[in-house]
């Protein structure tokens, strides 16, 4: 069987979890691009390129970034806003994980149980998750791959995400600073 590639959807009725088809998490120092392990810097550049060339790039900060303002969270928040400014991205928060009742307002928020609604409504073509618990991030990533053509990015503070089209692991202030640099390099026409 051919190697499963984690490319943007819409993939269909119920796409598989990438981990069940041989996609492995990045090792320390690495990132993932479309299911392949690459050097962390290569992944950051790939993400930067996507962000710069997107029509509606959007950051989805999650609860771990939105609440409990530790110094780290403040600094990460500042960097996310700066990267978003640099690429002209929207910022649509995921304030919590409960399915939205009676109805989500997809213009102002995203939810892991039905993230496709927000992607569709805003015509988002590149979406970046950060500060979302890994379980909920994986739900969102898979549902988006199933029903939309959005390119997904997961900036994970832990081990990364196979279900994203591109993912960094151990994302901290330094890696966000590096991503900001990568965005600036790409904007100036590459290295």
């Amino acid at each position: 069987m051919e190697r499963y590639r984690v490319v943007p959807g819409p993939e269909g009725y119920l796409p598989p979890a990438a981990a069940l088809h041989g996609v492995e998490l990045p090792l320390p120092g690495q990132g993932l691009v479309e299911g392949s392990r690459v050097e962390g810097r290569t992944a950051a550049l790939a993400i930067a390129e996507r962000l710069v060339s997107a029509s509606v790039p959007t950051f989805f900060p999650g609860p771990l970034l939105l609440w409990k303002s530790t110094e780290e969270a403040l600094e990460r928040g500042r960097l996310v806003r700066e990267i978003a400014r640099e690429v002209g991205a929207k910022v649509i928060p995921m304030p919590d994980y409960r399915p939205k009742y009676p109805m989500i307002d997809p213009a102002v928020e995203i939810n892991p149980n039905h993230p496709n609604l927000t992607i569709w409504f805003n015509k988002i073509d590149v979406g970046v998750f950060i500060g979302v618990h890994c379980h909920q991030a994986n739900l969102a990533l898979k549902i988006i791959r199933g029903g939309t053509s959005c390119f997904t990015v997961a900036l994970c503070a832990h081990e990364g995400h196979e279900d994203a089209n591109a993912s960094l692991r151990d994302t901290d202030v330094a890696s966000l600073t590096a991503l900001l640099d990568a965005v600036r390099i790409v904007k100036q026409g590459g290295e």
């Binding site: 939105l66 996310v80 910022v91 307002d105």
Partner: peptide, 19 residues
């Protein structure tokens, strides 16, 4: 109580119900 306070960098984009 800290988890009930918002990161100021995102206060402008938080939906009204959370504010």
């Amino acid at each position: 109580l800290e988890i009930t306070r918002m990161n100021p960098h995102f206060a402008d984009v938080m939906p009204q119900e959370y504010t």
